[in-house]
C-alpha cells in the first residue's frame, strides 16, 4: 500500500495538482507529521502508525491545516488521512476553521488490529483510496463495565480515576476538535490554578460536555494521558447517547451542523428522528 501511496502523491506533486502533500514522515525511527513539497522527499512518507495528522496548534489555538490554509490561501493541499483524521477535519470544518474544498483528501484504511487497539468505530475514511475497509469493533463490551454500574459506583469509579489527574491538559491539547479560543478548562471557577488534583467533577466534565457533539472517538486524549485515565470510555458512552437521542454522529459530513450549536438544530433533529 505504501508504494502506491508514495507514487500517487509524487504524481500529484510533479503534475502540480497540489502545492503540497501533508502526511507522516519517518525519520531516525520516529514518525511525525510533515508537509511534503518535493516529490523526491516522499521516500520518507509513511502510513499505518497511530500518529494523528489533525491537531490544534497551541498557543495559536487553530487546527494545523487551518494554519496551512491561512499561509497559502486557495492553494490545493493533499492530506493523507485515516478515518479518525478525516472525521477530525470535518468537525473543524463545521466550525469554520478549514475549507474542505481546498483539500485533496486521500484516505487509507486501518487494519482490523489497529481498529481493535483504538476501539475505533469507523477505521476508514469516506475518501477511501488505499487499503481494504474493515468493520470497526463493537464497543458494547468495552463500555458495559461503566453502563452496568449504579450511579454511586460510577461516581466512585470516576472520582478515583480523576484523582490521578496531574492537570497536564494533554487530553485537551491532543484533541483534534478542541479549538476554542477561550478554554473553560483554564477557567479558575472550575479549577483554581495551582490546585491538584483538579476539582471533581467540573474540570473534566466541562470538557466532556463541550465535546459531546464533536468527539470523533479518535482516542488521542487517552493516548496522551500520562496517568492512564480511561477517557475514551466516558467519551464512547457520551457519543452513544448523542447518537441515540440526537440521531447524530460526529465527523461524517462537513456540511452538517452540530446539534448542540443551536437549539433549533437540536429541535429539528429530534423532530426528524421522531
Amino acid at each position: 500500500m505504501l508504494t502506491e501511496i508514495r507514487k500517487h502523491c509524487a504524481d500529484l506533486l510533479t503534475r502540480k495538482q497540489v502545492a503540497a502533500v501533508y502526511g507522516l514522515r519517518e525519520r531516525d525511527g520516529h514518525t511525525a507529521p510533515y508537509l511534503f513539497t518535493r516529490a523526491e522527499d516522499l521516500d520518507g512518507l509513511t502510513v499505518g502508525t497511530k500518529v494523528p495528522v489533525t491537531f490544534t496548534l497551541r498557543p495559536a489555538k487553530k487546527n494545523i491545516i487551518s494554519a496551512f490554509q491561512e499561509k497559502c490561501p486557495g492553494q490545493k493541499i493533499a492530506v493523507l488521512v485515516r478515518g479518525c483524521d478525516e472525521r477530525g477535519l470535518y468537525e473543524v470544518a463545521k466550525r469554520g476553521q478549514i475549507q474542505v474544498a481546498d483539500l485533496a483528501i486521500i484516505g487509507y484504511a486501518c487494519d482490523a488490529d489497529q481498529a481493535r487497539a483504538c476501539h475505533c468505530p469507523r477505521p476508514h475514511p469516506q475518501n477511501l483510496k488505499f487499503g481494504e475497509k474493515v468493520q470497526g469493533p463493537s464497543n458494547e463490551a468495552f463500555i458495559a463495565k461503566i453502563v452496568n454500574m449504579s450511579v454511586a459506583e460510577r461516581e466512585a469509579f470516576w472520582r478515583a480515576q480523576f484523582s490521578k489527574c496531574i492537570k497536564c491538559y494533554g487530553c485537551r491539547n491532543s484533541c483534534p476538535v478542541c479549538i476554542c479560543k477561550e478554554c473553560w478548562m483554564e477557567n479558575d471557577a472550575f479549577s483554581p490554578t495551582g490546585w491538584l488534583p483538579p476539582d471533581f467533577p467540573m474540570f473534566h466534565f466541562v470538557h466532556f460536555y463541550h465535546l459531546s457533539d464533536s468527539c470523533i472517538e479518535c482516542g488521542a486524549c487517552v493516548d496522551a494521558c500520562p496517568m492512564d485515565i480511561p477517557l475514551n470510555l466516558i467519551r464512547k458512552v457520551l457519543s452513544k447517547k448523542v447518537q441515540e437521542e440526537l440521531f447524530y454522529t460526529a465527523g461524517q459530513d462537513p456540511e452538517e451542523k452540530p446539534p448542540l450549536a443551536s437549539r433549533e438544530e437540536a429541535k429539528e433533529r429530534l423532530e426528524k428522528g421522531i
Binding site: 525511527g29 520516529h30 514518525t31 511525525a32 507529521p33 502508525t49 497511530k50 500518529v51 491537531f55 496548534l57 497551541r58 498557543p59 495559536a60 494554519a67 499561509k71 496531574i166 492537570k167 497536564c168 491538559y169 494533554g170 491539547n173 491532543s174 493516548d223 496522551a224 494521558c225 500520562p226
Partner: peptide, 30 residues
Amino acid sequence: YLQIMDGELVGVLPCKDHPVSQGKLCIKGW
C-alpha cells in the same frame, strides 16, 4: 517534537514512539 512552520516555532507535539515519554507529557512539556 518542536513544530516549525516557515522557520517559526509554532508548538509542541508529543512523540508517540519515544521509549521514555510514549506520547505523554506534563504541562511543562506541553
